[in-house]
Design a protein around this nucleic acid. Structure first.
Lengths: 111, 111
DNA sequence: CTAATATGCAACCAATGGGTTGCGCATTGG
DNA sequence: CCAATGCGCAACCCATTGGTTGCATATTAG
């Protein structure tokens, strides 16, 4: 385990926080399914305001999960897969540590 | 469990939300590293109150990420790996859909 | 038995978060 | 050219959340 791992845990919190909202998860799912889209298009079909969607996109962007590029009068938003991979790796790490902790515990009990 | 289960937002959102807090991530990391532990032990080393830790554990438990078992006068808390797997699968699903969306888009542009 | 330990419960507080409305500013279609 | 489209910014509102303190209760060590 490298020292970098520990700092990566701290980095992960904002990522999970950004994903921890139903509306934002829907946005992410929508982007995943439909590819890059504008804000108004992402707003279509939701009961929310464009501003609300904008705010959510901002949160996702701050977490690095999404990126918006202004093109003409509209801005197209797309997923940033690498950041998903970070969260992915974090979950892996915790699970693996837990496994070894349990086996260590089990062994200790048996002896 | 089918991929469809993982794609259900109402299930995944609370999980991510629970992980979206630095203190709770530390708790999870601590449990992963050290195995099952009591509340007071988990509180040790943090600047927080035992009650604060209790609340955080409650949040994690509601998301199914953690489980507490009362044993005598103390309650031991441990990770619930399956729930981590749910989040894991969700991330996979989104990433894969994004890939196919992009390749579809690229192909469309090239034609 | 009694004191120390480990936890639970409830009330309370400040800060954050999700959401809205209102307005102004660029860009573009016809 | 000008009206419609697509955004951004700011102020405001209420509910949730992270945290505390205070007190009560159960278990265990000596």
């Amino acid at each position: 385990m490298t020292p970098g791992d520990a700092s990566r845990l701290d980095v992960s919190a904002p990522i999970f926080a950004a994903l921890g909202d139903a509306t934002r998860l829907k946005l992410v799912a929508r982007l995943g399914r439909g590819g890059p889209q504008s804000i108004t298009r992402l707003t279509r079909g939701t009961p929310l305001t464009r501003q609300a969607i904008t705010k959510h996109l901002r949160v996702l962007a701050d977490a690095g999960l999404v990126r918006g590029v202004r093109r003409g009068r509209e801005s197209r938003w797309e997923l940033e897969p690498e950041q998903f991979a970070v969260a992915h790796r974090y979950l892996d790490l915790v699970s693996k540590r837990w496994d070894t902790a349990l086996s260590r515990l089990k062994k200790h009990v048996e002896e």
